[in-house]
Simulated assay, not measured.
Amino acid sequence: MTQRSAEAQQYHSLYRTALWKQLRLAQLAHEPLCWMCDELGIVTAANTVDHRIPHKGDHALFFDAKNLASLCPSCHSRHKQRQERGGKVVRYGADGYPVG
């Protein structure tokens, strides 16, 4: 098992807590659209709640409502995770041109 997967398993149970479920629903009600798509002028429903600052098991960051952001599955699985790994993310606007 890699170090990354061992760390992920350590705090994976936080996603099953009643407090997380409540925070997730509140975040999606407050911000129902993907913020990354919205910046590009694209309207996309969000169904994933992401941590703006990766929590890495830190309970204070994990349960901080100000650290949450709504994303669509595509942005969460591609763009956000690439950013967290230190890669460059090139996003395209509704017109098809790259957006800085």
Rank of each mutant, 00 (worst) to 15 (best):
H12E: 13
G86E: 09
C37S: 05
C34I: 01
K56D: 13
Q9M: 04
A18I: 00
T44P: 02
L19Y: 07
S13E: 14
W35S: 03
G100A: 15
Y97D: 04
L33Y: 15
R52C: 10
L14M: 05
R52I: 15
R78N: 13
W35D: 06
K56V: 07
V43Y: 04
S13L: 11
H12K: 14
H51V: 03
D58Q: 14
T44D: 06
N47Q: 12
Q10T: 12
R82A: 15
G57S: 10
H79K: 13
A46R: 04
Q83P: 01
N67C: 01
I42K: 07
Q83G: 03
P54F: 03
P98Y: 06
G100N: 13
K66F: 05
K88V: 09
L23S: 03
P32V: 02
E31P: 03
H12G: 12
R85G: 13
P32K: 08
D58G: 13
S70N: 05
D95M: 11
T17Q: 08
C72T: 03
G41R: 03
R85W: 12
D58W: 11
K88T: 08
N67R: 01
D64H: 04
L28D: 08
R4P: 09
S70H: 02
R85Q: 15
V99H: 13
A69W: 07
C72Q: 03
L23T: 04
E7V: 06
Q9A: 09
A94Q: 10
N67Q: 01
L33S: 13
H76S: 09
N47S: 12
K21D: 12
A60L: 10
L28I: 06
R78Y: 11
L23G: 01
V99T: 06
R52D: 06
A46F: 03
S74W: 09
A6G: 03
H79V: 11
R16T: 07
K21A: 14
S77H: 11
H79C: 07
